[in-house]
Nucleic acid binder design. Structure first.
Lengths: 166, 166
DNA sequence: TCAATATCATTTCAATTGCAACGATTTTGG
DNA sequence: CCAAAATCGTTGCAATTGAAATGATATTGA
């Protein structure tokens, strides 16, 4: 408990941040150079591929980005023609955002590259170790879920990951 | 390989980012509320505790923060009296940064709280799984180390973690 | 029915950030 | 010895960011 031998490099939150930032940066080199995208745009595009026409709020609730950030990312994507906003027929407040053909084309180009990078990372460990890795991540999430001081998980992240909780 | 079933929530870089950000945020609630610190200040303080009087460049090379960010974090810490800059005797360019008593006091207050949060997270998994977890992290770092497009690791992160590389 | 409240997307604003440039100092190499 | 190159910390600047405010539309409840 002596604070003197407290190493930053062995501190879990720091180590997570370092690896995460390094991975994200490597990834953004990929879609940044090829299509001028930033991480927010990338997340929005990928989400749209799966969910079709959705509102800003929907995206915000799914991809872990603040609402203004989603709004601006969508504007940029629209300016580049990768996304289109169609005024929702029913609720006048909602904006239905969907991929354009150009957006789909861009994703068809980026996703394989992104998957390849992910593959490189996961190929370096055994499938069992990788399972354990994701299991540990899920346990940590569960700890935070029970912590009132922590930000709640998005619905999507909850549904996708919270399966193996013995 | 079909891009259609590409889920963001099962994409490793995304999952890392989400967990890392959630953990960091939970931690910063701690030292933010109690001492008004941000992550950059926190890292600088912790590094100083171990390394005594060091230069801006030294901090930059150890705690994964850009040089200007370190410079500004140090300025803020100095303004709050947690850190002091003493003009280096030898090299006139260097600035020796060290903790003040107030800085040490603040750390003595924050580090136990930070350790407690880390403990909560790690207590939720078995020691073997935690070992595997860090092992996997190290393997992913190793992949990035071999990737010319990835940003190199800091010397400190390298020395601390790169031990088990069969 | 219709005022009060809630929700949605955007915008405003202040603060943070990274990159590049800068002045100051030191080191290097001829 | 001294000019050129390198290094150090800081600052300028433009872009990004998040929290709160805003305007517009929907929903609620009396």
């Amino acid at each position: 408990m002596t604070p003197d031998d407290f190493h930053l490099s062995s501190f879990l939150p720091y180590r997570l941040a370092v690896l995460s930032e390094r991975v994200s940066r490597r990834l953004s080199v990929e879609y940044g150079r090829t299509h001028g995208l930033a991480v927010a745009e990338w997340r929005v595009l990928v989400h749209l591929l799966r969910c079709g026409a959705v509102s800003i709020r929907d995206i915000h609730n799914c991809v872990n980005l603040e609402k203004p950030r989603v709004s601006r990312a969508v504007s940029r994507l629209e300016a580049e023609g990768l996304v289109q906003k169609t005024q929702g027929d029913g609720d006048g407040r909602l904006v239905a955002i969907s991929l354009t053909d150009a957006g789909r084309t861009a994703l068809a180009d980026i996703i394989p590259a992104a998957t390849r990078i992910e593959q490189h990372l996961t190929d370096a460990v055994s499938p069992e170790d990788l399972d354990t890795f994701f299991h540990v991540m899920e346990r940590m999430h569960a700890v935070l879920d029970a912590d009132p001081e922590a930000k709640p998980r998005t619905v999507m992240d909850l549904n996708t990951n919270a399966n193996a909780i013995p």
